[in-house]
């Protein structure tokens, strides 16, 4: 897959999937996506952060702030803060719908591109 050509709806699916595993903050989500895709998919920060804001606005994810104390500032008051994101119940439902829709789509396409010996049912299993 060419990197940097991700559609918005695919970005949404990917972010919801990552957050389904565990809460994460923006930078970690970006790194996680790159690592899981072997570097093929890169959610650039210019895409990632507005998308997170959109998902939060839609109630699909929730957020909270965590104060980070580095070695440099652990003796000081305050410190840098990270915004953590979690999947909401609504987001989990949306993810489930999107995953199913994606699998149905793959199954449908597989029916056309599979070798003749493979039936659609088999193709669906492969897709999964």
């Amino acid at each position: 897959m060419p990197s940097g050509e991700l559609r918005s709806e695919d970005g949404e699916l990917i972010i919801l999937s990552v957050l389904a595993d565990e809460p994460a903050y923006g930078y970690a989500i970006g790194k996680g996506v790159a690592a899981r895709s072997g570097g093929e998919i890169r959610l650039t920060p210019g895409v990632l952060y507005p998308l997170l804001a959109k998902l939060e606005r839609q109630g699909l994810i929730t957020s909270s702030w965590e104060t980070v104390r580095s070695e440099r500032n652990e003796d000081e008051q305050g410190g840098r803060r990270r915004k953590w994101y979690r999947l909401s119940a609504k987001g989990r439902k949306r993810l489930s719908q999107r995953v199913q829709a994606h699998r149905d789509y793959l199954s449908m396409i597989a029916a056309f591109i599979s070798p003749p010996s493979l039936r659609p049912r088999d193709a669906k299993e492969i897709a999964e």
């Binding site: 903050y25 923006g26 930078y27 920060p45 952060y49 840098r80 803060r81 990270r82 915004k83």
Partner: peptide, 17 residues
């Protein structure tokens, strides 16, 4: 309304990056 929060999040991103 969102400026401070967005800036703080991106500041954190930039520092880590």
């Amino acid at each position: 309304r969102q400026a401070a929060a967005i800036r703080e999040e991106l500041e954190s991103h930039l520092q880590e990056r």
